[in-house]
């Protein structure tokens, strides 16, 4: 009913179409980076659902990313599942893991929540290292090309990889867009803004937050499964604390609580790190400097600032 309902959808469809068009024009190097960015942006979008829209700051999303990735990878190499089924298996596992972690961690809030999620994620990472015989520990394992065929489509092929990444990206983009505009998403924002008030309006705050964590964790798990499958490698690094910090960084940079922010943040950060790693092995320095600058000067992030200044209608 409000003006701009259509322009919101048009904008996001346009973004997807632009990325599709880039598929035909980008040189191989950037084509490869963009494919990776799209998959990582799924992780960021998942993170943003909990952090941006619900106000739950987790430092443990590497657990969900890793859970999805290992469920998919071990599903293929260990259980002999086909890739499609393995991804479904990964989604089911992510739902379970996020439901369990959420129902425990959400008994805390604020700083405690950050530490609890961090500790669970660390425990998960150590578990992967501890069961090195199955998980191949730090080294990780490669998913052979022969096992990366879905309905005759070879995922190792860079063109297929790009298009499948785009399809998954678009699905998650429109799903989150739909969710945050639903009464569920609006209730989450209410909880973020004023939890006590939301409770006294009749919202079951715990159930809503748990729902948010499950959606967020499942999207993050899907990202992990997609990443492992599309790039053919599963390793403990992806479950380490770095992959809890990175989505936070991407979302803060792009703009928390905006639909396009996670993608914009991931894109910028990936290129920043890519460019700086040509000069130095200490490329994480860029991440550090940007985190500090963001907290000091640009709390809204890129899309957030655009929204504030020019386009308050952006979701």
């Amino acid at each position: 009913m409000r003006a701009g309902e259509n322009r919101v959808w048009l904008l996001h469809i346009a973004v997807v179409l632009v990325i599709l068009a880039l598929h035909f024009v980008l040189p191989p190097y950037h084509h490869g980076i963009l494919a990776r960015v799209m998959v990582l942006a799924i992780l960021a979008m998942g993170y943003n659902f909990a952090f941006g829209y619900t106000g739950l700051l987790s430092l443990g999303h590497a657990l969900f990313f890793g859970a999805g990735m290992y469920a998919m990878g071990l599903g293929i190499t260990g259980l002999g599942l086909s890739p499609g089924i393995a991804v479904l298996f990964a989604i089911v596992c992510s739902v379970l893991v996020s439901a369990i972690i959420g129902s425990l961690a959400l008994r805390t809030a604020g700083v405690s929540l950050m530490i609890v999620t961090l500790m669970f994620a660390q425990a998960g990472w150590y578990l992967i290292l501890y069961f090195g015989e199955i998980t191949r520990g730090d080294e990780g394992f490669v998913i052979p090309q022969a096992q990366r065929l879905v309905a005759g489509i070879d995922l190792a092929d860079s063109n297929n990889r790009y298009l499948i990444a785009l399809i998954l990206f678009a699905i998650v983009l429109f799903t989150t867009l739909k969710l945050v505009r639903s009464s569920f998403g609006k209730a989450l924002v209410a909880i973020r803004e004023n939890e006590e008030r939301a409770k006294m309006l009749g919202y079951n705050v715990f159930a809503y937050k748990l729902g948010a964590i499950i959606v967020s964790g499942t999207i993050s798990g899907l990202a992990g499964a997609a990443y492992g499958l599309l790039f053919g490698y599963v390793g403990a690094t992806f479950a380490s604390v770095q992959y809890s910090i990175l989505p936070l960084l991407w979302v803060l940079l792009g703009g928390a609580s905006t639909i396009l922010g996670p993608f914009v943040g991931t894109l910028f950060m990936t290129y920043l790190i890519d460019i700086s790693s040509e000069f130095t092995e200490a490329y994480l320095l860029v991440a550090g400097v940007i985190l500090v600058l963001l907290t000091l000067f640009a709390r809204q992030g890129i899309v957030g600032e655009v929204k504030k200044r020019f386009a308050p209608w952006l979701p």
Partner: peptide
């Protein structure tokens, strides 16, 4: 939250609204 669902409504002593949201959204919530 269940008591509210049963038909109690409570307004806060200290104004407790959703400042960053529109009046419409406050009431809609």
């Amino acid at each position: 939250h269940k008591r509210i669902g049963m038909g109690m409504a409570y307004t806060f002593q200290i104004t407790s609204i959703f400042g960053k949201l529109s009046l419409h959204e406050n009431v809609a919530l």
